[in-house]
Structures are given as C-alpha cells and as structure tokens.
Design a binder for these strands. Structure first.
Lengths: 340, 340
DNA sequence: CCTGGCACTCATCGCGGCCGAGTGCCAAAT
DNA sequence: ATTTGGCACTCGGCCGCGATGAGTGCCAGG
C-alpha cells in the first residue's frame, strides 16, 4: 500500500509532466510543489512508485514519467473532474444554439469539443435504434413508379433514406395507404420496437400489394441494423500535431485509426452507457491507439443516452480539464437535442 | 523559348523527383533517361531552366527540384492524364455500387479517392441549388403543434431538414394543403427556381394561415442560401504523414486548412465548373496550402456538375496518375447518382 | 553547340569529448 | 523507522572537427 505522500508525489509528477512534456526529476518536484520533504526523500518515494509500476524512466539518468498504470491511479483516485468556468459555459451554449439541423449540431459539437480540449473530437450521431420514430415517409419516384424512396425521421432530428426497388408498379393511393398505416403504427414509438410493430402489416394488404409492402418493410428493418446505422463525425485532427516531436511514428497510426469508422465505433461502444469512461494507453484494444487516451461519455435528450461523444488525445493529457469539457459539452448537446 | 530537349529535361526532372523525393542531379538524369547527351549538356540546360524559374536548387551543390512554375509547365504541356487500368476501373465500380444512400456514396467516394491517389480526398455533397426538387415534406411535431419540420429531398438523394417555429398553431389539414400545393409547384423543378415558384403562394391561403405559410416558405428559402447548403467530407488525412520528413511544419497548416470547411469550399469553388482544375503550390490562395497541389473536378448525374471533388497532396505528386484517378472517380460517382 | 575535365562548394555523417541533470546508495541525523 | 545531505556514477544531448562525395559552374577543345 502506498502512503499518502507517495500518492501526492505521483499526483505532482503527473501534473508536472502534463504541463512540461518532460520527464520530471526529484529536485524540480520539490521546488514546484510544497511537499515538505527533501529531494532525497522524494527519490525514495519515486523508487517505490517505480517498483509498483506507476512511473518509469525513459532512460537511466532521466526524470520519471507516469506509466499508463500511473495515469489510471491518478484518474481514479487523485483527480476530480474540473468544472468549466462560467464564460466557457456561456461560450458553449452560444455556439451550439446557432445550429439549424442535426448535421449542424453534430458538426458544431465536434468543432467545439476539439477547440475546448485541444484534442481530437469524436461525436456519434444519435443512434436510430435508441430513439423514437417521428415520421416515416414514402415517395414514389417520378421517373420510375416501381421505385420508392423510404425516409425515416427520428425525434433526434436524424433522417435516414433508402431506395426501394419494388417488385411491381405501385400506385399513389396504395402508397398513401401504406404510409398512413405504417405511421399510425410506428410514429411516436421507439425504433427498437418497430420490427414487432410492423410484423403482420403486410398481411392486412390486398394480395397484389403485398409484395411491395413487404419489400418496403424489409428495407426498413434492414436500415435499422446496417452498419451505417451508426454514423459519426470527427474533427480537430490538426491538434495531433501538438503530440510530441517524434512525429510520424506517433501520429500516423492514430490518424489511420481515426479514419476507420469501425474502430472508432467500437471504441465508443466500449464506453459505459452512463457516466464517463476513460481508457488510457494500452487499455485501448486498438493497437494504433496504444499511446492515446480516450475520454468518452454518453449523451441524450432525456435520461437515457442516445449516442456517445468524446475525445482522443495523448495519454499525457489534462484529465480533469478534458473530462470537465467532455461532460459539459455532452450535457449541452443533450439539451439542444431535447429542444428540437 | 525553350528547346524541345530542355522540356524533355524538365519532364525527366519532374518524374525523377516525384519518384525519389530527392533533388536530381545531371548525372543521375542521363543515366535514367535516354536523353542522348552528356551530363555537361544537361547541366547547361538545367542552368537555363533555373534562369527561367522552372527548377531550383535547395542549396548549392545539390541537385535540382522543380518549382511551382516547373510543375505548371509539366502539367500544361508535358504530361497527359493517365487512364486507369481495367482492374482499377472495376474496383471503383464494385466499391461504389454497394452504397445504400447519399451519405454512403459520398463516404465511399472519399475513401476510394484517398486510397487510389494515396492523398487527402475531398468530396462535396451535391449542391441543392444545382439539383432538382424531388419532394418537400412538412411534419407537424407531436409535442408542439406550432412547430413544423420541413424536409427537402433532392433528386441527388440529398435530404435537408429544418425546424420551423410557426406564429400560430397549425392544423393537420392546413399542413396537408400546404404540402400538396407546395409540391405541385416545385416538385420536379430546379431548386434554383424555387424562390420564383413560391413567390405568391402565401397569398392563395386563408388569412389565418398566411403567417404560418410565409414562415415556412421563408425557412425554405433560407435553407437554399445558408452556408450549410454546401457540405463536404474529407478523408485520407493519414496520407499526409507520407509528405516528407520535415513534418510538423508541413503537416500542421494543411490539417488546419482542411478543418476549415470555408477554406475547402472556396478551394473547390475556384475550380472550373467543367474540366479538371489543377492548382499548384502558391497558386492556392490559402497560405497553409502553399506547399500542396489541389486537383479538382466537377461531377454530376447529367452533363452539368452538381458538385466537385478532388484531392489535396504535395506539389510533388504524380500528376498524370492523380488526374486520371480523380476524373475516373468523378465519372463513376456521376453514374451512381444518375441511377438513384 | 556539345563534351570532357577540373576546381570548388557545401550538406551530411561519424567521432570524441564535454557537460549536467538526475539517479542510487550510504551514513548520519531526527 | 524515516528523513536528509553528501557523493560517485551514468548516460543522453550538444558541439566542433574533419573526411566524404554528390553536384555544380566554367572553360577550352572538338
């Protein structure tokens, strides 16, 4: 078990290292923090912390830097979440309030988060399956009456569209009929429940229209499970250039990982549904992100999360500040979504 | 005026430099190309080319590298557009054919272009004002009857939505009426003509509904001029890490420029509407892109361009290959769009 | 106008030595 | 038992040096 002071030393090391980006030595520590002990004592504590695996030396005769395990302890036990300043809160609100539609909300959120944390921001679009149906629209396409456009509109403002090739030409009245019946069943209900709700819908139609109806329904159900169901936006990649000076090797795999939607979705998916999740360095499954930390949190219009957002930055990041910003932004986005 | 052989020397320099990323000297040139003259002669030619500003030396006693002006001459007079190989064409088609909706098309296009050119890809969404109205939908929002959701659907598959706060509660029948009349006027017409087409629409309604109608119409018209009218997607930023070895300084401003939608839109906007546009180095207005070249081209479902796409890469790029890839991708995207 | 020869320039690389931050250990002090 | 000052030691970073060699410009002869 580590003594109180040793934890204090670890905290000081993390703070200094995050600030300076340079290995921190015993002397510097005693100068910059009121630990009340001499450098020699700190050296002993550092040796102990190193034995436990919380800090490490890049090479002999250099100062110490925190390990992933050290950051973990710091986040779990030594640091809180730093609330944003009132001006910052106001700035967030002003910035997000100007959004005109969902794409705009997500876009602004990404930019905001990137600017606030000076890191890479990732924002997931509200999940369809976790939100509610506002309306289902069916449009006969003018040039080809056998093609129908299916448009799903969620209460989060998200709109999804699909082309449907119908087996037989479909009349305007039949389409209107289907549209009406479909909406009366699913409007206001959760997308997740849609499969059950429309299960026997085809049967209630005339024989000649059943083919069309079931094709449309099939496309509708597909849309809810497709991988494109989960969309996201990223921004602030320019902040990666502040990582370190040993560039290409550090930045390359991160950029590559960020381009893989699948990887990012998995990353956010691993985050807890409620509360903030912090994944540090090697805790991230994806290899390219082994030298980064991910701070993620769910957001939603109500109490339940409809999607997640977060940032990706160097393990050497200002955790309290980042966590504060991420949490605050998630709250405001939730509010905006509730209003629309 | 430059002799034929000097142009040949310039071409050889560009090709070698693009291949090796290293300044090319007179000896290496004569070895790798059949110029039929000695290194000394090439040296004289090089001196002439340098006087004219087509090539430069990074420092004394180093080989030459092409200047922006040199690349310009190369692109304009010395190089053609390299067509893609049949397998590449097939790969493009296969890859794009799987798209389920517009977002998917754009997303796939970005990834494809980035992979093909190994550079940063930028794809603009089809412009609303340059496409045709497929349908306008109006939805009364359940919780607040005075709020209406306006959804615009273009023939390119693009969907745009806006919230409208109406001055007075609006009934379902009035809304249906507006929806019907609106669509009969604008469906199948060009978005650009919509302002005229709906000009006197409000007047044909009962007094009590006029406020709502004109509010909805106002929002509709706004949507067509807003800056969000132009959206775009970028990808392949990981390719920036292949730029050079002198990183942070090169890559930083480029990443920053790429994050500014405005900058990118202006960049694409400067490209000619038809035919391919190549902007080299300092020809780009934006400072951060002074060491990059932009290859852009319009694409569209018919003969007319509805938007543009292109790539951003180092001035030292394979112009013929890049131009070939960009052109081919634009054509296929146009086809896909026409089909949907 | 082309070519071979020649002197010159200058960036790059490897080497050796110095410097100093930071450590680990120990014996004395509290 | 813990803290502290002292001290020897380690090792990465920095500097200056000379050797190397690719590449150039110039010139005189073909």
């Amino acid at each position: 078990m580590l003594s109180e002071r040793r934890l204090e030393v670890l905290r000081a090391i993390v703070q200094d290292y995050v600030g300076t980006e340079e290995p921190v030595g015993s002397k510097a520590l005693t100068e910059r923090h009121q630990l009340g002990v001499s450098p020699a004592t700190v050296r002993n504590d550092m040796a102990a912390l190193e034995d436990e695996g919380f800090i490490a030396q890049p090479h002999t005769s250099a100062g110490r830097i925190p390990t992933d395990k050290g950051y973990r302890l710091f986040v779990d036990r030594l640091a809180g979440v730093k609330p944003l300043s009132p001006p910052e809160r106001r700035a967030i609100q002003n910035f997000l309030d100007g959004a005109v539609d969902l794409d705009d909300v997500v876009g602004r959120t990404v930019r905001l988060l990137a600017q606030l944390t000076r890191q890479v921001a990732v924002v997931q679009y509200p999940s369809l399956t976790r939100s509610t149906v506002r309306h289902v629209e069916l449009l006969a396409l003018v040039p080809a009456p056998a093609r129908v456009m299916l448009v799903l509109i969620a209460d989060t403002g998200r709109v999804e569209q699909r082309m449907v090739d119908c087996p037989a030409p479909v009349g305007e009245t039949a389409l209107a009929d289907l549209r009406a019946r479909l909406n009366s069943r699913v409007a206001g209900r959760r997308f997740a429940d849609v499969p059950q709700l429309v299960q026997d819908l085809a049967e209630s139609f005339e024989q000649e229209d059943r083919g069309t109806v079931s094709t449309v329904l099939a496309t509708l159900l597909e849309t809810l499970v497709e991988e494109t169901e989960e969309r996201l936006m990223i921004g602030g990649t320019a902040n990666l250039t502040r990582f370190g000076h040993d560039f290409p090797l550090t930045i390359r795999p991160v950029l590559e990982a960020l381009e893989e939607q699948v990887v990012l979705l998995k990353l956010l998916g691993e985050a807890k549904d409620s509360g903030m999740t912090v994944r540090i360095g090697h805790e991230n499954a994806h290899e390219g992100l082994n030298s980064t930390s991910v701070v993620a949190v769910g957001y939603g219009s109500g109490d339940e999360a409809v999607a997640k957002l977060g940032v990706v930055g160097p393990t050497r990041m200002d955790y309290p500040g980042t966590m504060g910003a991420v949490r605050a932004v998630a709250r405001y986005v939730g509010q905006i979504l509730a209003e629309s």
